[in-house]
Computed example of a mutant assay.
Amino acid sequence: MEQKKKKTLLVVSLIVLLLIADQAVKLCVKTHMTIGEAIPVFGKWFYIHFIENQGAAYGMELGGEYGKLILSLFRIAAVVAIGWYIRRLIRREAPTGVIVGVSLVLAGALGNIFDSAFYGLFFSESTFTEVAHFVPWGTGYASFLHGSVVDMLYFPLIEIDRMPDWMPIWGGEPFIFFGPTFNIADSYVTCGMLYLILFQYKFFK
């Protein structure tokens, strides 16, 4: 029983710390940068580039108002399911590494849910010319679950002005690797999944 309590405390502490880090960066970007603004951090390979998206990780989205609502509800259902699964892992006395990996995924999902659920309620709209600011609760730019997710990490590691015409898909087009702009919560999900696949696959067998 004592071991289970320790693992539960570990999970809660880890998720809280990860959420604080994610939200601190997002709030700083949201209140200090305009949409599209980019700050170079490491040459041409890493920028803090502020954009917002209406959808899932790495800028993917579902169209329309109902698409946004469906995605938000799906996120909430996923968080509930992952939380239940972590509780089950703790009860089964699963390895700490497995529990930490799944907790990373949960923290990432929670971080982006917070944006879409609440940012629209207490922030003014971010634009290409105006920085967002706090407004009275419920008077922001969107309703509950319809807010935008803040993204800011951009790593254009390889930029090619024009791909060869014979190339499928990208032939004759400019190409950037890695093109998507994402946030810290997205990286939690990615790192958690990769860690589980690469180092904890035996447990899931």
Rank of each mutant, 00 (worst) to 15 (best):
V135K: 02
V149W: 00
G172N: 08
E130Q: 11
P180F: 13
S148F: 11
N183R: 04
G171C: 02
F155G: 00
G111P: 01
F114Y: 13
V150T: 10
V189H: 00
M163W: 08
M152G: 02
G179A: 15
W137D: 08
H133Y: 13
I113R: 07
G138R: 13
F122Y: 15
H146S: 06
F122L: 09
V135A: 06
S187P: 03
F123S: 00
G179W: 12
T181G: 04
T96W: 11
L104Y: 10
G108N: 05
V98E: 08
G101I: 04
P156W: 03
A185W: 01
D186K: 04
F175P: 00
A107S: 11
T127I: 13
D165M: 10
G138C: 13
A94M: 10
D115V: 03
S187N: 12
A132E: 05
M167Q: 05
G172I: 06
V150W: 03
E159H: 15
A132W: 05
I113V: 15
I197L: 15
I176F: 03
E93V: 12
L145S: 08
F175V: 11
W170G: 01
L145H: 06
L106H: 00
V102K: 00
V102Q: 00
P136Q: 09
M167L: 07
W137K: 07
D165I: 08
A185N: 07
S124N: 11
L196A: 09
G147W: 02
S148M: 12
W170L: 12
G108A: 08
G111E: 01
F144D: 12
I158L: 13
F134I: 15
F134K: 14
G179Y: 14
A132Q: 06
I176E: 13
V98I: 14
D186G: 11
G171N: 09
I197W: 13
L196F: 06
V131N: 01
A185L: 06
G172W: 07
G140C: 05
I184N: 01
G171E: 02
T129A: 07
V149P: 00
F144I: 14
E173A: 13
D186S: 04
I169S: 10
A94E: 11
F155I: 08
F175L: 09
D165Q: 09
H133I: 11
S124C: 10
L194Y: 11
E125Q: 14
V189L: 10
P136T: 05
F114Q: 13
F114A: 14
F175W: 08
V149Y: 00
V150Y: 03
T139E: 14
A109H: 03
P174W: 01
N183S: 09
F178L: 12
Y195S: 09
E125Y: 06
H133T: 10
W166L: 05
P180L: 12
C191I: 15
F175T: 01
L198G: 09
C191Y: 08
M152D: 02
T127Q: 01
L104S: 07
M193D: 05
T127S: 15
S103P: 02
D151V: 04
G179S: 15
F134W: 15
Y195A: 11
E130H: 12
N183T: 08
S143E: 13
S103N: 02
A185M: 09
G101C: 11
P168M: 10
L121N: 01
N112P: 06
L106A: 04
A94G: 08
L196T: 12
F178C: 06
G120S: 07
I184F: 15
L153M: 14
D165G: 09
M163H: 04
